[in-house]
């Protein structure tokens, strides 16, 4: 008599060794050790003969939704009552509360421009320097807002159009809805969307405005001094230079552009001047150049949110010959 059947049946090693071929050994095994033989048969059935439960009607996007809602709660500082949103066809009043609730503890800063009754209600959600946040809009769209950014959400006047205004940088994951256009309005362009993932960077003090399409399709129109609109394919990065009014599309690894949501900022060949602007937003510091030609040095690499700014400059110093001086909230960069 060998070990107990239970021990075998639930032993990982025994179970993993059972294959479709194992049945051939059964008769021989049965003579030697009938417990093992029975464990073999039962394992075989459990492993290979289980009926699958029929495919689910719950779509992956519904779980995405749950994840983002839960993340919103997870990111709160102080404990608040758990709210559960069962039904997303909520009324305007309820949706104000939803965004309101989310924004209160995430951003610490929100403004309501007008009363609840007006048709043109706008809600502004803002992050300050050093602060990021994630939220789900009442229409199910997921938005991650980067440092020092502002998003104005227009409570929809019509079901066919949902508009948001953006100053700064945000990543959008728009719920698919063929009957409705989602529009991101920025100073130098509009982005029109059906259902897709994309990143918009439109800071007022940046020289360039850009949109990177991760998935789906978007149209860019209302470009400053340009009548023609542009349609992007996944992996396209559209940039607009505010000074010379040139715009261009380059191919890029789109998945990298949304890494900032998880705390990694990836830069592909940007100038030190542009990098400094991002760092100012991240670390709430002022960065000044003693020699302005340094602003044109090129840097590629990642910056991690939880990294101290000194550590980051140590990395930059490896490829660019600079000296760093820090006093209080000011950082001076000079030639080595």
């Amino acid at each position: 008599m060998g070990r107990d059947i239970q021990d075998r049946l639930f032993d990982k090693k025994f179970r993993s060794e059972v294959s479709k071929e194992s049945l051939k050994d059964y008769k021989q095994l049965k003579q030697k050790d009938s417990d093992s033989a029975l464990a073999l048969l039962v394992s075989y059935i459990l492993k290979f003969k289980k009926k699958d439960i029929k495919a689910s009607h719950v779509r992956a996007s519904e779980f995405d939704q749950i994840k983002h809602e839960a993340l919103n709660i997870y990111n709160r500082k102080r404990p608040t009552k758990v709210f559960s949103i069962r039904n997303f066809q909520i009324t305007a009043a309820a949706s104000i509360l939803l965004i309101f609730g989310v924004s209160t503890y995430l951003m610490g800063e929100y403004h309501l421009f007008s009363g609840f009754n007006s048709q043109n209600d706008v809600i502004e959600i803002a992050t300050s320097k050093g602060q990021q946040s994630e939220l789900t809009l009442p229409d199910g769209t997921f938005v991650a807002l980067n440092y020092d950014s502002k998003l104005k959400y227009h409570l929809a006047n019509s079901n066919a159009l949902q508009e948001v205004e953006l100053v700064g940088e945000a990543f959008f994951k728009v719920t698919k809805n063929k009957a409705r256009t989602f529009r991101v309005i920025t100073k130098d362009m509009n982005v029109n969307v059906l259902g897709t993932e994309f990143n918009v960077k439109a800071y007022e003090d940046d020289r360039k405005t850009e949109t990177v399409l991760v998935e789906g399709s978007v149209e860019i129109d209302h470009i400053t001094e340009n009548k023609k609109s542009v349609i992007l394919k996944p992996g396209d990065k559209w940039t607009f230079d505010k000074i010379n009014h040139k715009h261009a599309i380059i191919r890029t690894d789109a998945s990298l552009t949304k890494r900032w949501i998880t705390g990694e900022h990836y830069f592909d060949k940007i100038t030190l001047g542009e990098l400094a602007k991002t760092l100012e937003r991240m670390y709430k510091v002022e960065i000044r150049f003693k020699d302005s030609s340094l602003k044109n040095e090129i840097y590629s690499g990642s910056v991690y949110q939880d990294e101290a700014i000194e550590e980051l400059f140590d990395v930059i110093k490896l490829t660019i010959a600079i000296n760093i001086e820090k006093n209080e909230d000011e950082i001076w960069i000079s030639k080595k």
Partner: peptide, 20 residues
């Protein structure tokens, strides 16, 4: 009832998130 289970999973994660 799949949507019942989906709601239960939502409740579990909301609760874990708020009481982490």
């Amino acid at each position: 009832d799949e949507s019942f289970i989906k709601d239960c999973i939502q409740d579990v994660f909301f609760e874990l998130a708020s009481k982490k």
